[in-house]
């Protein structure tokens, strides 16, 4: 088990995600994939913003909103609580 996720998830290099708990599959875009990988490394939400801004060309306000939205999507998908 990888801590934050509700069940085991594996992700391919191309952003293809498999949820072993439910058998459902997903696609992540590049940015989503980046966040997801960091989550698997147990990077915490408050650190995530910093990492994204280091890696991508984006301002803080947009990134913060988008990360929130992304976490919300993961919750809705039942991948995290």
């Amino acid at each position: 088990m990888s801590g934050i996720f509700n069940s085991e998830v594996t992700i391919s290099d191309s952003g293809f995600l498999f949820d072993h708990g439910t058998g459902l599959t997903y696609s992540l875009n590049e940015t989503g994939q980046f966040i997801f990988t960091k989550m698997k490394e147990e990077v915490h939400a408050n650190k995530m913003l910093e990492l994204i801004m280091e890696e991508f060309d984006i301002n803080e306000e947009t990134a913060r909103k988008d990360i929130d939205d992304f976490y919300r999507q993961l919750k809705e998908a039942g991948l995290i609580d």
Binding site: L24, Y26, T31, I52, F56, D57, D66, Q73
Partner: peptide, 14 residues
């Protein structure tokens, strides 16, 4: 160089 940003998304395959 920083990477080009797009809004993070996850989409379920139907």
């Amino acid at each position: 160089e920083k990477r080009i940003y797009t809004k993070p998304t996850i989409i379920r395959h139907t």
